[in-house]
Simulated assay, not measured.
Amino acid sequence: MLAVEGLIKKYGKDRAVDNISFTLEGGELVGLLGPNGAGKSTTMKCIVGLLRKTAGDIKIGGHDHLNIAAKKLFSYIPETPYVYDLLSVKEHLQFIAQAYDVKNWKEKAESLMDTYDLTDKADKLGRDLSKGMRQKVSICCALLPDPQILFFDEPMIGLDPKAIKNTKKIFQTLKDNGKTILVSTHLVDSVETIADRIMIMKAGKIIGNDTLSNLKATFADGDLSSLEDLFLELTKDA
């Protein structure tokens, strides 16, 4: 579903993303981990077209990532959720439904709002929503069109424990339905139990890309019992 080849993003002479390549398959949830400044968000923004890549090739569903056919296949949930100040929660979902020509959207919208405890906030304007509620609206809008691939950039930040638990359940359902999910985060425990594969970034490079068990077998010295231990070991300063 996603193929990234030789992706480079420069800011002046500095490489925020330094010649990385990877693929994602259908029905796969991949955790993109790294400390702040590792290049995770830049990578994701290049993939979805919010940043112009310096070099490299990106294909989504076999299409160039900037092609309209590719854009129809994915949803992107940014780290900082953006909502329209003068649209209500329900109107956000209606807008997405009309933009993506989602049939019979009301029932699904109501189910999503119920999952994220937004039903009683349906008529609340975007400008009056807390960051956590904006994040929930952003996730609901991303899920409504039933995309084939979803890009989540730090999805758990700002969510309450119930919403985090429900989001993990949704991830599992999406995987079961053959969807492809890329989750960028520095909160290691948010993906440890649900990711099929882990990619670890440091200084713009991918320094590990495999299943958790294989990464442990490759890099662990016997004392690294968790993904957090492995992550800290791989990303520590030399």
Rank of each mutant, 00 (worst) to 15 (best):
I20V: 13
I20Y: 10
I20L: 05
I20A: 13
S21P: 13
S21G: 11
T23G: 04
T23K: 12
T23A: 10
T23L: 05
L24S: 12
L24Q: 10
L24Y: 00
L24A: 15
L24G: 11
E25Q: 13
E25I: 02
E25G: 07
G26N: 12
G26R: 14
G27E: 06
G27W: 07
G27S: 05
E28N: 08
E28V: 08
E28R: 02
E28M: 04
L29T: 04
L29N: 00
V30F: 01
V30P: 01
G31P: 12
L32I: 01
L32W: 11
L33E: 06
G34H: 04
G34W: 01
G34P: 13
P35C: 12
P35A: 15
N36D: 15
N36F: 11
N36Q: 09
N36C: 12
G37A: 11
G37S: 09
G37Q: 06
G37K: 07
A38N: 10
G39R: 07
G39E: 04
G39K: 08
K40T: 04
K40P: 13
K40E: 05
K40R: 05
S41G: 06
S41H: 00
S41P: 00
S41D: 00
T43E: 03
K45W: 08
K45D: 01
K45C: 05
K45H: 03
C46Y: 12
C46F: 12
C46R: 02
C46T: 09
I47M: 05
I47T: 09
I47R: 02
I47Q: 03
V48C: 07
V48I: 09
V48E: 02
V48A: 07
V48P: 01
V48K: 02
G49P: 04
L50S: 00
L51P: 01
R52N: 13
R52S: 06
K53G: 02
K53E: 06
K53C: 02
T54G: 03
A55C: 05
A55G: 04
A55V: 03
G56R: 12
G56W: 08
G56H: 12
D57E: 12
I58V: 14
I58R: 09
I58F: 02
I58K: 10
I58H: 09
I58N: 13
K59A: 13
K59Q: 14
I60Y: 06
G61E: 09
G61D: 08
G62L: 14
G62S: 08
G62Y: 08
H63Y: 15
D64E: 14
D64M: 09
D64N: 14
H65P: 00
H65D: 03
H65C: 04
N67T: 12
I68M: 14
I68Q: 15
A69Y: 14
A69M: 14
A69Q: 15
A69F: 14
A70P: 00
A70I: 10
K71C: 06
K71T: 07
K71S: 05
K72Q: 13
K72C: 07
K72R: 15
L73F: 12
L73N: 06
L73D: 05
L73I: 05
F74I: 13
S75I: 15
S75P: 09
